[in-house]
Simulated scan of single mutants.
Amino acid sequence: MGENEEFAASLEDSKAAYVLSNVAEVVERILTFVPTKSLLRIVSVCRLWRNCARRVLRTQQQLTWVSACGPSNTEAHVLCSILAEEVEKVFLVPRTVLTLVDYEGFTGRAFCYKQNKAKKNRHSPDTVEELNLLFPKGCDIMGITTPGVVLTPSGSYSSLPREYQEGEAGFAIMFPSIEGVHIKPFHFCKKSISPTALKEAGLVDNPELRVVLIFVYEAYKTGGVHFLSQILEPLAKSKALIAGGLVESVFSPPRHCCSQGSFGVVGLALSGPKVQGASVLLDQEVSNPKAAEAAIQRLKAAKIPERNTLGFMFACVGRGQNYYHNQANVEADAFHKVFPNTPLFGLFGNGEIGCDRIVKEDYTLCDTDTDSLQHEYTTVMTLVHLG
């Protein structure tokens, strides 16, 4: 390199250094392309970068997710084996995380800690501890296992969702702090459920409650039916959208209040003026692809925006490929056809909770009672918009 070229290069370097040290607009624009974990480390560079990074963090209000399927290359479950690496790449600060994995693949195979055969069928405390380490302190993490999983591959809102009734699969949806949206996790067992507890969780006497995602575990145990009615009865009287299913187990947060194997419920209460919800019920009469698409098409009546909207599919283990005469992915394909830019997540479970309902301002599509919220051999297809 000649003398003139060296001088020109040094001049360009000095100009770049000046801009990156003094021009907030340029620095802030550049930092929008930096993943959040790196952004949090950048705040220590200088005052300008710290202020720019904080402004960028405040604008990161679009939810994201990590999903995985197929046999793992490690001893860990396929989702757990990639989650630590993928969390480094996200562009938000997670405040609430909903994690769902298949029961058979996950049992005894969470992260890469060593386990002997005696522990094969138990969730080690290390599972929860290592999961907590991946996310910021104070982040609420809900971990659920189910017989089957519905997920959208990581990376694009328009990716084709897939139904996994067999094999390893799982997802982790990460919700940031969003203005006008309040997400509150809840957990009840027979020892902790009460009218006061329901009120404290924001499930009753809460005029801003819009959506409740609810997951019941060990519901087949003696007393489980009555317990489920205790929580669904007050919810059925609200104008909120209620949707979920009966799952295998819950591994996070730890359930210190109830004994091993007892029934209970976990979920997310979504409140706030910017939350919208809608759901339709695909009953036993919906038994071919055309009928499934027609049922899902009714969700269009909600007129929910595409941005920051998720689809949830809560299906019976009796549906899926066998129900549709050996046609795979029927309901997920139908959803994608109607909502091509909305990611879909969910489960195949032991029962479904929900009904036809659209919640928009003071309007609901239908009123319902406790009994009509509980179903078998159906699918509850749901849209949730978060502002």
Rank of each mutant, 00 (worst) to 15 (best):
A76C: 08
A76H: 01
H77C: 08
V78N: 02
L79I: 12
L79M: 08
L79V: 10
L79N: 03
L79K: 04
S81E: 14
I82F: 01
I82Y: 01
I82A: 02
L83I: 07
L83H: 01
L83D: 03
L83Y: 01
A84Y: 02
A84Q: 09
A84N: 09
E86D: 11
V87S: 04
V87D: 04
E88Y: 08
E88W: 04
E88V: 04
K89A: 11
V90N: 03
F91G: 08
F91E: 04
F91P: 03
L92S: 02
L92H: 01
V93F: 05
V93H: 05
P94Q: 10
R95M: 11
R95I: 09
R95S: 13
T96H: 02
T96M: 05
T96N: 12
T96R: 00
V97P: 07
L98V: 08
L98W: 05
T99P: 00
T99V: 13
T99H: 08
T99E: 15
T99G: 03
L100V: 10
L100F: 05
V101L: 15
V101Q: 03
V101K: 00
D102H: 02
D102A: 04
Y103R: 05
E104A: 14
E104W: 15
E104S: 12
G105T: 08
F106H: 07
F106M: 12
F106T: 02
T107G: 03
T107M: 15
G108S: 04
G108H: 06
R109A: 14
A110K: 00
F111E: 05
C112S: 14
Y113G: 11
Y113P: 09
Y113L: 12
K114D: 14
K114L: 14
K114E: 15
K114M: 13
K114I: 14
Q115E: 10
Q115M: 14
Q115C: 11
N116T: 15
N116S: 07
A118M: 12
A118Y: 12
K120P: 00
K120E: 01
K120V: 01
K120D: 00
N121A: 06
N121Q: 12
R122C: 03
H123E: 05
H123A: 06
H123P: 05
H123K: 06
H123M: 10
S124R: 02
S124A: 09
P125R: 00
P125F: 15
D126A: 10
D126Y: 14
D126N: 05
T127A: 11
V128K: 00
V128G: 04
V128P: 00
E129D: 07
E130P: 01
L131S: 06
L131K: 04
L131W: 10
L131Y: 13
N132Q: 14
N132D: 15
L133A: 14
L133K: 15
L134P: 06
L134Q: 10
L134G: 09
L134Y: 03
F135E: 08
F135C: 08
F135K: 01
K137G: 00
G138R: 13
G138Y: 03
G138A: 10
C139A: 10
C139N: 06
C139F: 09
D140Q: 12
D140T: 13
M142N: 07
G143T: 08
G143E: 05
G143R: 02
I144W: 02
I144E: 00
T145Y: 10
T146R: 00
T146L: 04
T146M: 03
